[in-house]
Simulated assay, not measured.
Amino acid sequence: MGHGGNVIMELTIDHHEVEEFFAKIESQPVGDEQRRKLADELTIELVRHSVAEEVHLYPAVREHVPGGDEIADKEIADHARVEQLLKDLEGLDATDPDFDHLVARLKLEVSEHVRDEEARLFPLLVAAWTPEGLDELGDKVRSAKNTAPTRPHPAGPSTPPGNKLLGPGLGLVDRARDLLTGRGKS
């Protein structure tokens, strides 16, 4: 959710929380309904995190990091693959034969993306920007996660200005649907 600190701290904590969700899913018996509920919670976290990165982190990377356009484009492509997997997983029951396969593919994609961000992108951003700028970016990312969608929308825009305009509205609709259905509440 919102952890505090600069953007690197905020997103790194998110990454650890996502790893914990995968571990919780894997600890449940195959076909158990709890796996579906945990997958919904994982989806909520991943979508909110991705939207916040796309709205604030990647534009900052484009502006401040040498070669930032190429880096941001690669990260956004990673997000697109993850979002499609989340969409494919969204309607499946935990007993569906494809459920575990999609969770495994999702874990692989997310793990590779996280490793790349933490090993390459984050150090480049720290080297290219001021501590104050990183703190402000952390605040913006936290704020964006509060209004971001909670469901995958692979056809939606992933770059400004489209994502800044549509994201909060989609987020409001998604949170209303979640409230009505109880999705994301263990």
Rank of each mutant, 00 (worst) to 15 (best):
D100I: 09
T12C: 05
V103K: 04
H153C: 08
D139N: 06
G133P: 11
P168T: 09
P154A: 12
V7R: 05
F99I: 10
V173F: 14
P161F: 09
E117C: 07
K37Y: 00
R115T: 10
E132V: 06
G182L: 07
R175T: 08
G184N: 09
R115M: 06
H64M: 12
E26V: 00
E117L: 02
V173I: 15
V7N: 06
H15R: 09
R105H: 13
G162L: 06
A155Y: 08
R175F: 09
V82C: 05
E90M: 12
A39Y: 05
E90Q: 15
L89G: 03
L89A: 05
F99R: 10
R35E: 01
K74N: 05
V114R: 06
P59H: 04
F21C: 05
Q34N: 08
E41Y: 01
A148K: 00
D178P: 03
D96F: 15
T150S: 15
V30K: 15
E33D: 13
G138R: 02
L166E: 07
W129F: 00
E132N: 12
A155E: 13
G167R: 01
P66C: 00
R35V: 10
A77M: 08
I71S: 02
E117P: 08
D32M: 01
E10Q: 15
I8H: 09
V126T: 15
V110H: 02
V47P: 02
V126P: 02
V114N: 06
G68C: 10
R62K: 15
E19Y: 07
A155D: 13
D14S: 10
T95P: 00
V103P: 08
L46E: 07
G162E: 01
R142M: 15
I44N: 14
R177N: 01
L102R: 12
A104N: 11
E132H: 04
I25G: 12
R62I: 04
G68W: 00
D135E: 15
E33Y: 14
V61N: 02
V18C: 01
K185A: 11
I25Q: 09
F122R: 05
A128P: 03
T181I: 01
Y58I: 12
G91T: 13
V114E: 03
R35T: 03
T12F: 01
R175G: 09
S158F: 08
V126G: 04
G156N: 09
Q34P: 00
E54Y: 03
M1E: 11
T12R: 03
L89K: 10
E90C: 06
M9D: 10
K87A: 15
G31D: 10
D69N: 11
V126A: 14
A23P: 03
E112M: 14
F122N: 04
F22S: 07
F22R: 08
M9C: 00
E33W: 12
K185V: 12
A104L: 10
H64F: 12
A127Y: 02
R36W: 13
R105F: 11
P123Q: 04
P152M: 04
I8T: 14
